[in-house]
Design a protein around this nucleic acid. Structure first.
Length: 278
DNA sequence: ATTGTGGCCTGCCCGC
DNA sequence: TGCGGGCAGGCCACAA
């Protein structure tokens, strides 16, 4: 699209949903700590499609009913609930998944109108002895529940990734930097918004071959990944980046005013500044 | 093996 | 005013 017009009409100021990337799932994890130590009375799995990797309502019920929640952990975008039965419950939230603990407002509720929380969107739930519940609400059904997820397949968590870990994750890869950072096997926890924000802050072109970064660039990127996660966590979500308001056709670089490049990389819509991301 | 593509799913935005 | 196409993106199956 050619410029000439000042810019596309600015998107309505209405806040956008916080897509569940690492930051949001960490918020869910903290909320889930409220149920640690409780015993599962019953499993509610009304949507069998939501159960992945061979899990079925009866298998999940067998694993969870009567078991105590031992802890609430997270790796990347996966929320892990180890149970006293020895089974670990893995919860993924896809793009629109929310966690509702004890019937309170779903995390991120303030981002939405009340109509967004249709009871029909409840895909999975645990009810606890003595009351309370933990429910996954997901309009789009892109999330899921699995038993004993293999976290060994995931890369190091983005929030604490070190330069050597990042080098290892990117080394020898010809894939675009954007695609490599989205790949949960390489780095766990980053989604589309966080990657674009991080690369913009790093001054790195998302199309650069991932393995082509030199050592200073890898160090810089590792630091930016951590600081971006930390910064946006403090602001309240992965949608609070500096680039966010300009993520639309005709959007402009918040730093230099150049029109942002919009393209598809790693299968995702990618915005970057052609002037200072190289 | 790695990298790329398309499909899943469905609410919602926008243009007609 | 209503309708319908396109868009959103995490994740997986599959293709090259």
């Amino acid at each position: 699209m050619t410029s000439g017009r000042p810019s596309a009409p600015r998107r309505a100021e209405r806040s956008r949903p916080a897509v569940p990337e690492l930051i949001e799932v960490e918020t869910y994890r903290r909320a889930a700590e409220a149920v640690v130590g409780r015993t599962v009375a019953d499993v509610d799995a009304p949507d069998a499609w939501f159960l992945k990797r061979g899990a079925s309502p009866s298998l999940v019920t067998d694993a969870a009913a009567g078991a105590r929640v031992e802890s609430a952990d997270r790796h990347g975008k996966v929320l892990l609930l180890p149970l006293s039965s020895g089974v670990v419950l893995g919860l993924r939230f896809g793009m629109t998944g929310r966690l509702v603990v004890d019937g309170g407002a779903p995390i991120g509720a303030l981002e939405y109108s009340s109509a967004r929380f249709d009871p029909a969107w409840e895909r999975f739930g645990l009810r606890f002895r003595g009351g309370g519940s933990l429910v996954v609400s997901d309009a789009r059904r892109l999330g899921g529940v699995e038993l004993d997820p293999d976290t060994g397949l995931l890369g190091p968590d983005a929030s604490t990734i070190t330069a050597p870990q990042l080098r290892c994750a990117l080394d020898g890869s010809a894939a675009p930097l954007k695609a490599a950072l989205l790949d949960q096997h390489r780095v766990a926890g980053l989604g589309n918004l966080l990657v674009d924000e991080t690369l913009w802050r790093s001054g790195l072109d998302p199309a650069r071959p991932a393995g082509g970064l030199d050592a200073p660039e890898v160090r810089r990127l590792a630091g930016r990944i951590r600081s971006t996660v930390s910064d946006l966590s403090a602001r309240g979500g992965s949608h609070t980046g500096d680039l966010q308001d300009e993520r639309h056709r005709g959007g402009r670089c918040p730093r230099c005013g150049e029109e942002l490049t919009r393209r598809t990389l790693g299968g995702r819509t990618t915005y970057s500044c052609p002037r200072h991301q190289a």
